[in-house]
Amino acid sequence: MADTTQEETVPAAAEGAAAPAQFELQQHHKWYRRPDVLIPVILVVLGLAILATTGDTSPRYRSQFTPGREVRFGWDYFFHLVPQMLQGLYITARATVLGFLIAASLGLVLALLRRAQKRWVSWPAALVIEFVRSTPILVQMFFAQALVRATPGISLNPIVILFLVLGIHYATYASEAYRAGINSVPKGQWEASIALNLGPWTKWTRVIIPQAVPNILPTLGNYLVAAFKDAPIGDAVLSTAGVLFFADWIRADDFRPVEPYILTGVGFLLVSLPAAWAVRRLEERIAYERT
């Protein structure tokens, strides 16, 4: 008992000498009726949807700048590369979002198969999930590329291969998130819905899903960030025109390796750190209070 009250008051205590007994006013119990949760989530989803559907998808990386040979690191050159790096980052982010769309939906299917009563359904599903999860995505990309090349009559754009592989890889992660989220709903809730004679539809939409989502959503958010960090592997394997491809290209063009790679790292941090913080905020806000 003492532990739980302590944890709840940690943010309040950090702000100042607030009394430990003072709890924050919770306007609404249910996360899906609270605007401070819903509005940011909807805005982020809309933003990602816009990101996935617009913009230049085949940039040409070429610097118009002749860097001096004498310095190891030139700020002029560094800032000159920023717009092109952003273009590369955009391609990477786009592939991530499209891939994650596959991951989130395929993951749900995998999770349901994994939960199936019949063993001949659930065991193969478990094996597939475990296999894909514990093998490197880089090897999977090489495999997918070789498979596409070996199959007559199929030719896929590298970016399509990239987001398909990203999607399948992270679908296995997402399926574990779904499974954990569904399993986190206490057994009594399932039993209560049987006792109340709720139909399967009512049971899932009014009892299970509202309680599972607060556990699932932050995990999915974390995996979205993780997928974004894995997406540049596609540039190295499949030569998609993402952010790492940009750095390689500039290096080959200007023989200046330091700036493009450092810039790429900075660009990555500038996207993934705020994203990770946003996920943490969501996690704090959405946390389901069982009273």
Partner: peptide, 19 residues
């Protein structure tokens, strides 16, 4: 945790020795 491991790898292998 924020940086992509492949980018970190490239920075360490290619950029750091020169820098």
């Amino acid at each position: 945790r924020g940086i992509s491991s492949i980018i970190l790898l490239f920075i360490l292998v290619i950029a750091i020795p020169i820098l």
